[in-house]
């Protein structure tokens, strides 16, 4: 399935796979898609998530603790693909679990599972030759991060090798919720737009309907991560899918109202 954003802004929803456990992640993922998520990012838990704030760190720790592995995340992706053929599915990981699994084996398994794209947090374009080669070979979209600190020549390189969408980081910093959306975001999207016609999704600190609506004014999609993961942390296993669905509909609702 090509990654597609049906509404403006589209919604990308991040989940740490295996938090609190894999069956719950599955139920949440299905509920999120049905509530209007265009793309799901399935986060592979890692012991040392150095780009993540405390919320996703804790989620990652819980998932590592209960033994969630990359192979489990790929199996979950295959399951979700069978259940919801039209949802966008992205594997979101630090590089080491993928490297340990084997880059080629990972790409082959991900393709087989019906995954659309891959985002590696600590993969920069200069290190990506073999990575891109394998992703292309298996028709997986490489999604790269663009940062407010990236100069134009880096943005150009990032835009050139990205497929599916480009992930624009809204601010310098780690993942996490925040009150107001950084001004950096709009500026970055403007600079990035010079180099690409791909959809641009804005993430990091996107926590509520107002943020999503604001992003809709200058970008194609919003990525919501920590706010979702935090809600899962506060919910029981049984109520998590419903509360996530309600939250996502709320993000959508105010977008509709704002129009």
């Amino acid at each position: 399935m090509p990654i597609r954003f049906s509404t403006k802004p589209g919604l990308v929803i991040y989940l740490t796979a295996g938090d609190p456990d894999l069956p719950t992640t599955r139920a949440i993922a299905l509920a999120a898609i049905d509530a209007g998520a265009d793309v799901l990012e399935l986060g592979v838990p890692f012991s040392d998530p150095l780009a993540d704030g405390p919320i996703i760190q804790r989620a990652s720790e819980r998932a590592v603790q209960n033994g969630t592995k990359l192979s489990d995340v790929l199996a979950l992706a295959a399951d979700l693909r069978r259940e919801r053929p039209h949802a966008g599915l992205v594997i979101f990981s630090y590089f080491n679990p993928v490297l340990r699994f084997g880059l080629e084996r990972f790409c082959a398994t991900a393709k087989e599972a019906g995954v659309d794209g891959v985002l590696i947090t600590d993969m920069i374009v200069e290190e990506a030759d073999e990575y891109l080669h394998q992703l292309h070979k298996h028709q997986l979209a490489p999604i790269f991060l663009a940062a407010p600190t990236s100069p134009d020549e880096r943005l150009q390189r990032i835009a050139k090798v990205s497929q599916g969408f480009v992930y624009a980081i809204s601010r310098t910093g780690i993942t996490g919720t925040q009150q107001t959306l950084a001004k950096d975001a709009e500026e970055l999207v403007k600079r990035l737009r010079k180099f690409t016609d791909l959809p641009i999704a804005v993430g990091f600190g996107v926590s509520n309907a107002e943020h999503v609506a604001t992003i809709g004014e200058f970008a194609n999609a919003a990525v919501v991560g920590s706010a979702i993961v935090s809600l899962i942390e506060q919910s029981t296993r049984d109520e998590a899918p419903t509360s996530i669905a309600r939250f996502i509909k709320g993000l959508r609702q105010s977008v509709a109202l704002a129009r």
Partner: peptide, 27 residues
């Protein structure tokens, strides 16, 4: 097991390189 990228810098044989979030690259 890791492929060395042609544009990679700071390699010691196959080892080294730069595996960081994009935000740090400018620094």
């Amino acid at each position: 097991t890791h492929p060395t990228a042609a544009k990679s810098t700071g390699r010691f044989g196959a080892y080294g390189g730069r595996y960081v979030p994009e935000t740090l690259m400018a620094a």
